[in-house]
């Protein structure tokens, strides 16, 4: 009897540990959200989105320049990294044999694990050192190094899900291999690929470390790729560690904006695929009903 009670006690404690662990995981997430809503939501105003920063000491001003800067650099970085990542992913999944494929796979593995601050150094050494100035281009390059391995990896994984015999069926229609890959394999996986791309971009949009000493940051709106450029995360960082109340408030508003963008993209990407299938299913059902009536 005693043994059984002991076993039951152990079981009970085990359940307790499971539940409390889950609470421990959820708690910080909720706390972060609550504080962001409280502090960030309260500091948010239309001015924040429409104005560039005012000189030190004056209150007011916003982060328009940083939000636009983030879009600019993430856009520029994706412009290079998304197509390149797709091509590399296609190469790995459709041809992935031989020396070049193996070294590419190794490269991608390696890049996936590189700390983002080291990515910043990479870009610094390539761009800032040669151009002798911080620049938006260097920032975009750093972000593209963040995006590239994620997209290559997900593309490879996704395309590998298409069975071999489907590809053969494409070949059997008398299509050259590249058309089979592009119009059947890639096109057939487009929604999963989009999910991967958006997830990678949302990841890059939240990165601070690679931008610190590449794009550096700025208090002015700029569209020049060869000049320093502000970004939302770096601006939040600079304001957060500043001694001014107004700036700290803006840091919260910025963080609130950033998380809306990043989590918004993230959730959109996650549910885009399923939502679309559900939508299609509903449409079909409605369509069928009409048919029955006529």
């Amino acid at each position: 009897m005693k043994v059984i009670r002991q076993r039951k006690m152990k079981n009970f404690f085990f359940y307790f540990a499971l539940i409390s662990s889950s609470l421990v995981v959820i708690l910080p997430l909720l706390l972060v959200f609550i504080f962001l809503l409280q502090k960030g939501g309260a500091s948010l105003s239309l001015d924040f989105f429409l104005n560039n920063p005012k000189p030190v000491g004056e209150t007011g001003g916003g982060m328009r320049h940083a939000i636009l800067g983030s879009f600019y650099m993430v856009g520029l970085g994706s412009f290079v990294a998304v197509p390149l990542g797709l091509l590399c992913g296609i190469y790995l999944s459709e041809f992935g044999k031989g020396k070049i494929a193996n070294s590419l796979r190794f490269t991608i593995d390696l890049l996936t694990g590189v700390p983002s601050i080291v990515v910043g150094i990479f870009s610094y050494l390539i761009f800032v050192v040669t151009m002798k100035s911080f620049s938006a281009m260097a920032g975009a390059f750093a972000l593209s190094i963040i995006i590239l391995p994620i997209i290559t990896r997900t593309t490879e994984e996704i395309l590998k899900l298409i069975p071999r015999h489907v590809k053969e069926a494409g070949l059997a229609l008398g299509l050259p291999r590249w058309k089979v890959i592009l119009f059947i394999v890639v096109k057939g996986s487009r929604s999963s690929l989009m999910t991967g791309i958006i997830l990678a971009i949302s990841r890059a949009a939240g990165e601070t470390a690679p931008l610190l000493f590449t794009a550096f940051g700025s208090m002015y709106l700029s569209y020049s790729p060869t000049e320093p450029m502000a970004s939302l995360p770096v601006q939040i960082y600079n304001y957060a560690i500043s001694p001014y109340d107004d700036w700290q408030r803006q840091a919260w508003a910025g963080a609130f904006t950033l998380i809306i963008i990043v989590l918004g993209l993230n959730l959109f990407a996650r549910f885009f695929f399923t939502r679309k299938t559900i939508y299609r299913a509903i449409k079909n059902k409605l369509f069928k009903k009409n048919e029955d009536r006529t």
Binding site: P163, V166, G170, A172, L173, G174, G188, S191
Partner: peptide, 30 residues
């Protein structure tokens, strides 16, 4: 070989319609 396969079609063991493609597109893709 690509040209030849246009003259000799093939149906496979497992039904394998192309993924995320409508019935119409499946037939007309060739």
């Amino acid at each position: 070989p690509v040209e030849i396969r246009r003259h000799i079609g093939m149906v496979f063991q497992k039904p394998n319609p192309f993924p995320s493609m409508s019935i119409y597109d499946n037939v007309t893709i060739g």
